Amino acid sequence: MTQSPTASIRPGRSARAGRLGATGLGFALPVSLFLLVAFDVPVLMMFGWALTSAKGMFAPFIEFFTRPVYLKVILNTLRIAAIATVACAVLGYVLAYWLRSLSGTARLVALTLVVLPFWVSILVRSYAWIVVLGNNGVVNRGLMDLGLASEPVAFLYNDLGVVIGTTNLLLPFLVLPLYAAMIRIDGRILQAAETLGASRWTIFRRVFFPLTVPALAAGMVLVFILTLGFYVTPAILGGGRVPMVANMLDMLINRLPRWELASAISIILLILTVLLHLLYVRLSRQAGN
């Protein structure tokens, strides 16, 4: 009995499919193609625009470093990112430590409240701060009703408003990994320090806090990285008066336009972000150990 040609082909196809499935290539290939088209190609185009300027290969980079206005925006972005990071670190550490002290239903409810902001749009949350901190907002009304202020306090459309909104948005990104690191600390270590006569403050200062420093540092780097690329919050709560990198790129692309200069600034920001990400990965590994 003769065998049909298609019957001899099928085992080969199934074998190849089995090899692809065994190596995971069949699952990774579609995602890799998507990342190549959606991310890698635009990044390469950005490098091309920055390095093929009509004024010269490195002209956009030279212009960026020689124009004080661009450096001022970068420094202002780094300053706001640093302030927001420190604010998140202080508030986040206290909140994570409080979460660790809870148990049962109370801890579950508290963690739900921490995660709940992720379900609300950043745009909505940013506009909500206008209702709270505006000249006729809840906070200013309360201050004037209590006699603590004779006129509305300028919380918005300045650096303070941007820092408040940014801290609110990014606080969960620091609290959750820091809380996870805190609950992994073996309680027997703290009990051993207590049996040796150490006070609660000494235990926290010399045992507990040093064990959480890697996770805290990793969370701070993550918050700093996310703040560098913020656009919506500075645009809304800054009112166009707080220059940051993302807003400057919007102006260079959509208003002027200066694509080659915007690409050069994006490359510099990308390199800085990659370096910070490497630091974050290293600190995360230390926190995991």
Rank of each mutant, 00 (worst) to 15 (best):
I74Q: 09
L91K: 13
V86L: 15
N76K: 12
A128G: 01
G147Q: 02
A82V: 09
I83E: 05
N76C: 03
T77G: 14
V139L: 00
V90H: 15
G142K: 00
L108E: 10
V138C: 00
L116D: 05
V86F: 15
T66W: 13
T66E: 08
R141H: 01
N136G: 12
R141C: 01
G92L: 07
W98H: 15
Y97K: 12
F118H: 04
G137A: 00
T66Y: 10
L99W: 11
L111N: 09
D145E: 12
Y70N: 15
V90F: 14
V131C: 03
R125A: 01
P117I: 09
G92V: 05
S101L: 10
Y93L: 14
D145A: 03
V109D: 01
V131P: 10
A106T: 13
T77P: 08
A87Y: 14
R141Q: 03
V132I: 11
S126G: 10
S103E: 10
A106F: 01
I74D: 08
T66G: 13
N76D: 09
R107L: 11
A84G: 15
S126W: 02
T112S: 09
S101D: 07
F118W: 02
A89Y: 05
L91V: 12
L146R: 00
L102G: 12
L108R: 13
R107E: 14
S101M: 06
Y93H: 02
Y93W: 15
I80M: 13
N136C: 05
I130N: 13
R67M: 15
R107T: 06
L116G: 07
W129H: 04
L99P: 04
V131R: 02
V138F: 00
A96D: 06
A84K: 07
